[in-house]
Design a protein around this nucleic acid. Structure first.
Length: 908
RNA sequence: GGGCCGUUAGCUCAGCGGUAGAGCGUCCGCCUUACACGCGGAAUGUCGUGGGUUCGAAUCCCUCACGGCCCACCA
């Protein structure tokens, strides 16, 4: 069989199997089999904002690897696909689109806007799911879910209702993070922090003309601020109660410059006397700390000077109303005149919107919140009890710290794209609400209902005049339900019973709090169990120089382009082999070529095996079970031992979510052991006359290759499927697909002795090859070699001289030479010397240099041995086996040193 | 201000208590009948600093330096 091309061409192969798997519904998961053994993953649903990027490629490849691995292990597996509606992010994309048409969402109106959103997201979904299929993802396509489809809307309503009834959801007037560009409140977890260079402005607030105030009082005091524009909304100045500088001022009034107001000086322990001037201007409506000071000093009141549109309100004074925050700042600073005492440079951390990057404005607003304390406690307890683990473990502390310091979760968003809050207000009770922004309306009484209620429990009106709360829920609210909403919760079903809780969640650390923690809390609250027992956290794919990839930096690598160029398997391998648990990964396109080369190596080694098989597979195929151990040569026992070890290693690593290590182990085995040594040695018998020996080699080649392909399949699904199909008949496999085939390994081929012996032979080959290369012996020239040395090694080489001859390109090995023949070079390996007569060819100067270098290495090694063995403590305290090892090493090196010395003396 | 993670060959990274490794790159030689996306060979490391534990430390502990990340209301 030689139909395989010389160079692997991934395109047709990938297309073929992707289609075949899909057609056969290969990855359909039924709630059947041993529940205990199930392995279930729900996809972190990508936002429907466009196409998948390389981070998605890594994330989904890792999941696919785990799913395929566990499937290979014979477990029932289920991987649920789906997308997230993406709330603000998606709405922003659409608003940008509208902008190019010179329209806003308000021009369209809510319903028309949502209609467009639905059309757009539908398109996006199919792009994304297509890309996942292209990546080879073993998803159960029949289970595709969307956070805003009907079933998930039922889950969202059920969750809201449950939390409401339990008193865990409330509408409150609180300080919230307001994005003036997106026009909505955000949760704390949705903020980014950024260090910015700014100024610290020192402003004098003069004393008010108070008859009781002394001379000092009229000077007032100086406050330091990074936000002068907010002074228009100041309602107090706070100082530390113990600050001696300001004792006389506490309780006195100050004139607030640029305004008609007088504000009091209050004492508050939250003030840090060492910062700035030790006096803080207090703007309760626009600063979280100041808000809290107001709570402690209610008499100071508050004044909102920045509106929800980011512009100054009339409250800020006629001169400033309507200005942007930035313009107001400039104007305030300019208007202060002599009141501005000093301006200094200052670095400070500002909060920005994670979706659009705008500066966040802390604002007082009416919003919906989830009470988090009890939910977080349950999640903490589950984590502490080991019911939920993070991998790598180092994320545990940040995770539990976050839960420990949790604040209530603001879940209402003033946007249109999302699940509208299922709360209705009676227009009889609240006649004027339709015309006002809801975040400004206090004390609303609402009815929680999926549909418009027909009577009001309060005023008993049966008119049915209700309007629904216009806000939508945080997109992460529906994502938090994902691990059970995808199985139809709150409906009871066989799916939900069988698949929940899921097994692992694979994600990047950037959404640990936004998503992972909230799923844990919601799962525990609504399902009574953790949604998954382990969260596998991977790093971020960065560019070559370690920078985050971003469109604006122009350093993005498009997964589709890479798959086109190098093949999906190569792309996947290159991602996975660098994905060391929890670590970010600098990724360069060049790294894919190595993976492509590996694919080609797999391809060609399989080609080689197939070329050496008869057209017709023997009855039952080539099996290892039929091989008598006595028929096996050293190389056979060695490769089987190495094979078993590699398989075991890969399996252990996969099971521990260390996919990189698994891939690495298989790569090293297949290339460095199987191809470089076994295949070369196999040629001896494959081209030889012994029919039985040939069959033995064939069986080993077929089985070792098949087994390795199986363990490689999770990482490189396409090429391994293709080769499995070509080989399975020869392997006596019945399974139609590689995923259903029996798991390899555990067949008892471990053989330390074979490994030790083969290692010695390999060392001999290595020494001879090095000698050839270093003395520039023409590659075509076959050599005749004489051996000398210790008995066991000599016997080994003699016994396996065919190995040494082919691999080192020798004509003949003549045993037991007495002395070194003249005009010969010497290769040293273990306790053996190989004399290579090279009359006329040999360059003695080169040979001398070569041996002298080797002698130098030996001296260094001997030095170490001697130092250790002359250390009494080492002899008495180190384990005996270790001491013996060093003794043996010393003996060996001494012998080698003597041999080199002898050769050098006689060299001519 | 807390916490976490790095610092190993020119580059990117494994190794994490017993003679320093891989890939890429570099150099030398090869179209050796599976593969030039290949084969053979070679060069290259005070394993960030300083201490400690140990018979023995790249590996464990502490100090510091540098880099990165996460969290935090310093106006």
């Amino acid at each position: 069989m030689t139909s395989l091309e010389k160079v692997y061409d991934p395109k047709p192969v990938e297309a073929k199997w992707a289609a075949a798997w899909r057609e056969r519904r290969m990855f359909r998961a039924e709630p059947k089999g041993e529940r205990k053994k199930r392995f279930v993953i729900v996809i972190p649903p990508p936002n429907v904002t466009g196409a998948l990027h390389i981070g998605h490629a890594l994330n989904n490849t890792l999941q696919d690897v785990l799913i395929r691995f566990h499937r290979l292990e014979g477990q029932p597996t289920c991987w649920v696909p789906g997308c997230d509606h993406g709330g603000i992010a998606t709405q922003n994309v659409m608003e940008k689109q509208l902008k190019t048409e010179k329209k806003s969402r308000f021009d369209l109106g809510r319903e028309a806007f949502l209609e467009r959103m639905r059309a757009w997201t539908k398109e996006c979904k199919s792009t994304i799911l297509g890309q996942l299929a292209r990546l080879g993802c073993a998803l159960d396509w029949d289970r595709e879910s969307f956070t805003m489809d009907e079933a998930r809307a039922r889950s969202v309503y059920a969750a809201f209702e449950h939390l409401w009834k339990k008193g865990l959801i409330y509408r409150g007037h609180r300080m919230v993070n307001w994005c003036v560009r997106c026009g909505t409140a955000l949760s704390d977890a949705e903020l980014e922090r950024e260090d910015r260079k700014t100024k610290l402005w020192h402003i004098r607030y003069p004393g008010a003309p108070d008859p009781g105030a002394g001379a000092d009082g009229s000077e007032g005091l100086i406050v330091a601020t990074t936000r002068p524009e907010t002074m228009l909304g100041d309602t107090a100045v706070a100082v530390h109660p113990d600050d001696s500088r300001y004792q006389g001022l506490i309780g006195k009034k100050l004139k607030l410059p640029l305004t008609p107001y007088e504000i009091p000086v209050v004492a508050d322990a939250a003030v840090d006397s060492s910062f700035g001037t030790g006096a803080v201007k207090v703007t309760p409506a626009h600063d979280v700390n100041d808000f809290e000071i107001w709570q402690r000093h209610p008499e100071i009141g508050q004044r909102q000077v920045i509106g929800f549109d980011g512009r100054m309100t009339p409250e800020a004074g006629a001169a400033y109303a309507g200005l942007s925050r930035e313009a107001a700042r400039d104007k305030v600073v300019a208007d202060l005149g002599e009141g501005l005492v000093k301006t200094e440079d200052h670095a400070n951390a500002v909060q920005t919107c994670y979706r659009c990057g705008s500066l966040i404005e802390p604002m007082l607003a009416w919003q919906w919140f989830v009470k988090m304390e009890s939910l977080a406690k349950a999640a903490l307890a589950a984590h502490e009890a080991g019911r939920f683990k993070l991998s790598p473990e180092s994320w545990s502390k940040p995770y539990s710290d976050w839960l420990l310091n949790i604040k209530d979760w603001c879940i209402s968003r003033q946007i249109w794209w999302g699940h509208q809050i299922p709360v209705w207000y009676c227009l009889e009770c609240h006649p004027d609400i339709a015309t006002k922004p809801f975040q400004t309306i206090p004390d609303l009484k609402g009815v929680v209902s999926k549909t418009k209620p027909n009577h009001c429990p309060d005023c008993k009106s049966r008119k049915g005049d209700f309007i629904q709360d216009p806000d939508v829920l945080d997109t992460w609210f529906s994502s938090a339900l994902w691990p059970f909403s995808v199985f139809g919760w709150p409906e009871k079903s066989a799916d939900l019973d069988f698949f929940y809780p899921t097994s692992v969640l694979v994600t990047g650390y950037e959404i640990l709090y936004l998503w992972v923690a909230r799923m844990q809390m919601m799962g525990l609250e609504l399902m009574g169990d953790v949604p998954f027992h382990t969260c596998v956290i991977h790093g971020i794919v960065r560019d070559k120089s370690g920078k985050k990839m971003s469109k604006s930096l122009g350093n993005v690598i498009d997964p589709l382009v890479m798959m086109d160029k190098y093949g999906t398997d190569a792309f996947r391998f290159s991602l996975v082999v660098q994905a060391h648990p929890g670590k970010d990964m600098p990724f360069a396109e060049e790294s894919i070529t190595g993976a492509r080369n590996f694919g080609n190596k797999i391809w060609n080694s399989s080609r080689f095996v197939l070329m050496n098989l008869p057209d017709q597979a023997p009855e039952g195929g080539y099996r290892l079970s039929g091989l008598g151990r006595s028929k096996l040569e050293l190389a056979d026992r060695w490769i089987l031992a190495e094979y078993e070890q590699a398989i075991e290693m890969a399996r252990v690593r996969y099971a521990a979510y260390d996919v990189a290590a698994a891939a690495d182990a298989l790569y090293a085995f297949l290339w460095d052991k199987f191809c470089d040594w076994y295949v070369e040695l196999a040629k001896l018998r494959l081209t030889g006359p012994d029919g039985e020996a040939k069959e033995t080699v064939r069986a080993i080649l077929v089985q070792v290759l098949l087994g390795t392909l199986k363990l490689l399949h999770p990482v490189m699904p396409f090429i391994t499927e293709e080769l499995y199909q070509a080989l399975k008949g020869y392997g006596g496999e019945d399974a139609p697909w590689i995923l259903g085939s029996p798991r390899p390994g555990g067949e008892g081929w471990k053989d330390e002795q074979a490994v030790a012996r083969m290692t010695r032979v390999m060392e001999a080959v290595g020494a001879l090859r090095a000698l050839r290369a270093q003395l520039n012996v023409p590659p075509g020239l076959k050599l005749r070699v004489l051996t000398a040395g210790d008995g066991e090694g000599l016997r080994l080489v003699e016994e396996h001289q065919e190995y040494v001859k082919t691999l080192a390109r020798l004509d003949a090995i003549d045993g037991a030479a007495g002395a070194r023949p003249p005009h010969s070079a010497t290769a040293l390996a273990g306790g053996l010397s190989f004399y290579v007569p090279l009359e006329g060819v040999i360059d003695f100067a080169k040979e001398r240099a070569r041996l002298e270098k080797e002698a130098k290495d030996v001296v260094a090694q001997l030095e170490r041995c001697r130092a250790q063995l002359s250390n009494q403590n080492f002899l008495s305290r180190a384990p005996k086996s270790e001491v013996d090892t060093i003794r043996q090493r010393q003996t060996d090196f001494e012998a080698k040193q003597n041999r080199i010395r002898e050769i050098l003396e006689n060299l001519s």
